[in-house]
Amino acid sequence: MIELSITEDFHSNQDWRNHKPVWDKEKCVQCGICYLFCPDGAVRLNDEGYYEADLKYCKGCGLCSRQCPTGSIAMEDEVAKWPWQVR
């Protein structure tokens, strides 16, 4: 029997995302530009004082990575790769 992957959680934006933002804490100066420019309000302050993405709501648009003044946000691929694409 074929199982179709149908989204049941309509509050989540996980099915939109191809890339996810990853913060480099050594480069981050905690300026909050990523928080300001996130269209989905998915960037939040954690207990350590650094910013991180709530991956339930992040759509992976890459605006935070583009606007980061220190280049501390990298966009990592999240899509499953074909065998010949894996190195």
Partner: peptide, 24 residues
């Protein structure tokens, strides 16, 4: 980096996450 957003804005969000608007 003179702009520090946490000192300038409140953290309250009134347009909450989980919307179906397009990317970016």
């Amino acid at each position: 980096y003179p702009v520090y957003v946490p000192k300038l804005l409140s953290r309250d969000e009134h347009f909450v996450s989980g919307r179906r608007s397009c990317k970016g």
